[in-house]
Amino acid sequence: MNSRTLFRRIRKSSFFLIGIITVLIIVTLAIISPMIVAHDAYIGDLELRLKEPEGFAGGWEGYILGCDPLGRDVLTRVLIGSRASMLIALTVVGITLVTGTILGLISGYYGGLVDMCLMRLCDILMATPGLLLAVCVVAVLGSNFVNLIIVLSITGWVRYARLVRGNVLAIRNSEYIQASRVLGAGNAHIILTQVLPNITTPLIIQASQQFGNVILIEAGMSFLGVGVPISTPSWGGMISAGREYIATAPWVVIAPGVALMITVLAFNFLGDGLRDVLDPKNKN
């Protein structure tokens, strides 16, 4: 595909454009949030407890989205809270993408006993409802960032491994791979130069969709109190803390929920858009 067709497809795919622009905005906000927020995300003023949103009446220094039960500015916490979600999602997607791809390559390329064992392991991990397994493991091991990332990674690599394995199996016996074998290419060489470039597109699409998914699971876990530690602002934690005040101070819950939805939506749009752009044949 040359760059011109790529650009044409990008311009035609509104999903991709909306997705990429929103994602860029969210990521930028997450990075610069400590510099732009007007209030302290951790320590509140109890006199401002559950203060109603005042919009732009007080300007940037005011309490645009109101305050939470501890008198902390909701907008500040939503902005700072994005960092936890982004950090976890990025790390988990990175880890699972790499390990899943490597394991999938090994499984698909070598086949045999290795393949069988890995695939059964995948089956076993897929057989336990994702969030349930994650929650149970963290509940036992204790909840902190590292455990959270480990747990989400343990189940996350399976999809990549299966995807890669399937594609490797399809390519492995194709003529051009056999041709390189005849030419004396080694296994590692074939994997790196022939197989890997062929599966990057589905991997990128999968990664972008997993990103949104990890954020959702993390929010669910934080809501249940086994995700991000309560001391760190996170969207799930904020929703959980604001839950009792839903009748009197709904803004405490609405704001992080909207942020969560827009973020996940943006990554899902990006994933669908990427498919339109990179792999139009596979459109459903």
């Binding site: 929010a219 929703i239 939805m261 996940v264």
Partner: peptide, 12 residues
């Protein structure tokens, strides 16, 4: 939207 909505938030 359905893919992107958190259970907690939708419920609340």
């Amino acid at each position: 939207i359905g893919q992107s909505m958190s259970h907690v938030w939708l419920g609340l």
